[in-house]
């Protein structure tokens, strides 16, 4: 009897210990992702040391990229990355928000189900397939039917001149297609998280579908949609292969958006395996470091925005 009384609590303690062991074990395994993230940044920081020492902060606004003279600057690549991403965003935002409004409607019709599946498949297509399609189909078509007419008729704007098959604008166009699913899927979730009461009140007051969405739902989902846009920006900044295939790979700041350019990711993809010496590969890694730090900041900012809006929605609902 006494033994039984004694074993009971110790069994409970043992069970508790096993449970704590399990919890510790899974939390250690789960730490793999944060650990890898930190390791990536530290590794790139260490690999870029020679270039960091040689060029300092001036690396960011140097325009020269000369492996022979060991002189490297990142500005043309940064310009190309930022320009393609922002043109892509400008093209993708109106379409992406429209898609999100359509998909966020309540009730599942066959048409909406099909549209949703289509958008998800758009996200699933590998980057390299977009690349080969853009290279052989999209870019020649856009060159002939959009770029040439524009530059012929709008002769007085310098940055709309000199069309080329491979260039900044075509890269931005592929990017727009590629970030659209991210943009619309997250915006849809944010719009769905808007408290139902708001929508019902607007409808009860006699607002039409458009008035409800434009004056009530979109304004209250604004911060979350902004987060979705920033998240899509992060994807656009880091996209490599499709952009590399159509941007034309010229390390210059182009005078026209139709002209060839370069992005941070494309420079690394094209040149890293051929880079010899110490300074050249280090400069390429430093481009990667710039890229990853920018996308890190952009992503964390966007995730915080998206989460705070859906949490707010849950609290006010």
């Amino acid at each position: 009897m006494a033994a039984a009384v004694e074993t009971k609590p110790s069994a409970a303690i043992a069970a508790q210990r096993v449970h704590d062991g399990f919890r510790t074990a899974v939390s250690v395994v789960a730490s793999a992702s944060p650990a890898i993230l930190v390791l990536i940044v530290l590794t790139l920081l260490q690999q870029a040391q020679p270039a960091l020492h040689q060029f300092g902060v001036g690396f960011l606004w140097g325009t020269d990229w000369n492996p022979v003279a060991d002189n490297f600057g990142a500005l043309p690549a940064i310009f190309g990355t930022v320009a393609t991403s922002f043109i892509a965003l400008a093209l993708a935002i109106p379409v992406g928000v429209a898609v999100a409004l359509v998909l966020a409607e309540q009730g599942q019709t066959t048409l909406r189900g099909l549209l949703g599946t289509g958008i998800e498949l758009l996200a699933a297509i590998p980057s390299v397939v977009y690349g080969i399609w853009a290279l052989y189909v999209l870019a020649p078509w856009v060159y002939e039917h959009i770029e040439v007419p524009i530059s012929d008729h709008v002769t007085f704007i310098g940055w709309l001149s000199d069309p080329a098959v491979r260039g900044l604008f075509n890269a931005a166009l592929v990017l727009a297609v590629m970030i659209l699913p991210t943009l619309s899927a997250i915006s849809r979730d944010v719009i769905r998280a808007v408290p139902r009461g708001l929508k019902e009140n607007a409808i009860a007051l006699g607002a039409t579908w458009w008035e409800t969405n434009w004056r009530v739902i979109l304004p209250s989902a604004r911060a979350g949609i902004f987060g979705a846009v920033i998240l899509a920006l992060g994807r656009a900044l880091g996209e490599t292969i499709a952009v590399t295939m159509v941007i034309g790979n010229q390390y210059v700041i182009p005078h026209s958006i139709f002209q060839p350019a370069y992005t941070l990711a494309s420079v690394i993809a094209n040149e890293f395996t051929e880079a010899t010496g110490t300074l050249y590969p280090a400069a390429l890694v430093e481009l990667g470091l710039v890229l990853i730090l920018v996308t890190l900041v952009v992503n964390v900012f966007a995730l915080i925005l998206v989460r705070s809006t859906s949490r707010e929605a849950r609290l006010t609902a």
Binding site: Q47, A265, I268, G288, L291, L296, N299
Partner: peptide, 21 residues
Amino acid sequence: LACDVLVGTPSIAIGLFVYAF
């Protein structure tokens, strides 16, 4: 948060990291 950020990390940077490692 780390998982979501890792999903958005440019894959080319992951290539550079594994190259060094």
